[in-house]
């Protein structure tokens, strides 16, 4: 596939954007966005890197990514439920920073 290298570069940039977002965002939902972007970047990488077989795309990485997409939505759903509960309990949707509560010792 002649566009594989292009998509590999796109995956690299997307992964970088995801990592940056994960570090600088305080809100947990933004962190979830960032994690999902990182996951999508890796999915693109897996499919783009796999070479075609006799002109047909390799089915194995595609099947793995299909599994990955469903796992990602499962994990996201659980994380969102956790975030809502955290907000109900504490009124915050952010995590305590290092010198906040929970790390006083």
């Amino acid at each position: 596939m002649d566009n594989a290298a292009l998509y590999v570069l796109a995956a690299a940039v997307l992964f970088g954007v995801g990592v940056y977002g994960l570090i600088v965002s305080a809100h947990l939902m933004r962190k979830l966005f960032a994690i999902n972007i990182m996951g999508n970047a890796i999915f693109i990488l897996m499919v783009a890197v796999a070479g075609p077989i006799d002109g047909a795309p390799d089915p194995v990485p595609q099947a793995l990514v299909l599994t990955g997409i469903v796992i990602a939505v499962s994990a996201t759903a659980f994380a969102l439920a956790l975030m809502v509960r955290l907000y109900q309990e504490t009124g915050r949707a952010t995590l305590a920073d290092d010198n906040g509560p929970g790390n006083d010792d």
């Binding site: 594989a4 570069l9 940039v13 970088g16 390799d58 990485p61």
Partner: peptide
């Protein structure tokens, strides 16, 4: 920013290495 650039660069390096080195078709596929 440096961490993000480094992480993205790592992914790109991995991917380009695998793509440009004339990949064999996956045996499992």
């Amino acid at each position: 920013l440096p961490i993000a650039v480094g992480a993205g660069g790592l992914v790109g390096l991995l991917g380009l290495g695998a793509t440009l080195s004339d990949p064999e078709p996956g045996l499992a596929g």
